[in-house]
Amino acid sequence: MKRKSGLSPLFWIGVGYLVLLVIFAIVGPNMRHPFDVKVGGPFLYPSDQFWFGTDEQGRDIFARLAYGARTSLVIGLVVQSIAVTVGLIVGVASVYAPKWISIPIQRFTDGMFAFPDLLLAIMIVGVFQMGVGPVIIGLSFTAWPAMARLVKNQIATLKDREFVVAAQAMGAKTPYLVIKHILPHLWGVILAVMMVDVAATILAESTLSFLGIGVQPPEPSWGQMIAVGNLNKNSYPLMLLWPCLILSLTIFALNFVGDGLRALVDPKKNQAI
């Protein structure tokens, strides 16, 4: 069977959307109106002045969405950077470290899978204070085991390949071997998985904010805007529509980009599951 080469149009649509979203997050919050003060009457419909209308306190929804995009993207990227760092260290260690280190590490990673992610994040965030910092800590704590497992499995398939064995035979020390010969093969897969995981992190962050235990008002976030929109949906449904729309589109875009990258670096995984 002939394999389709190149990237799908969905991938490029996703990339385009994400670029726009980043621009929106950078310039949007104060472009026309500040995001956190009353600038007009409450529940105004979209107009020239307020492109997406105003919320229940008369704040500009456009600016608030942009600020929420900034929060979500920052949390998503920071959490995944932490997860990748920890995952790489743990993953490499669980293959190459001496047994007395690697076995406890593997057991601990397995143990982390035995508990539902979201519940753990809710616990950590809920018992500490609420806010951006604790959300990042809580979500990083639940995000790294999946990355560690991915790194470990990838290394396990690479470890016995000829070029690695050859390097070993030529006297390469383990740190040199890992950095020069193994890691360069992993970046592609890690980047692809990271895209999909950023989407999962953004979803988890909005879940926490929706439940009222994540990002706290007055700082806006999408999850919180959905929660407030949910309360006012009878009188003013638009307030619910905007954050739902932008959140769903972002999740789709990140998944398309992640899937596209994955198909590129790992053609065997390019199946519908």
């Binding site: 979803l203 959905i226 949906k233």
Partner: peptide, 18 residues
């Protein structure tokens, strides 16, 4: 798989209840 619960639920309530 991708649409979160808290997006779907308000929409269903809006359409079917309100």
């Amino acid at each position: 798989v991708t649409i979160p619960n808290y997006v779907l639920l308000p929409i269903l309530v809006y359409v079917f209840a309100l």
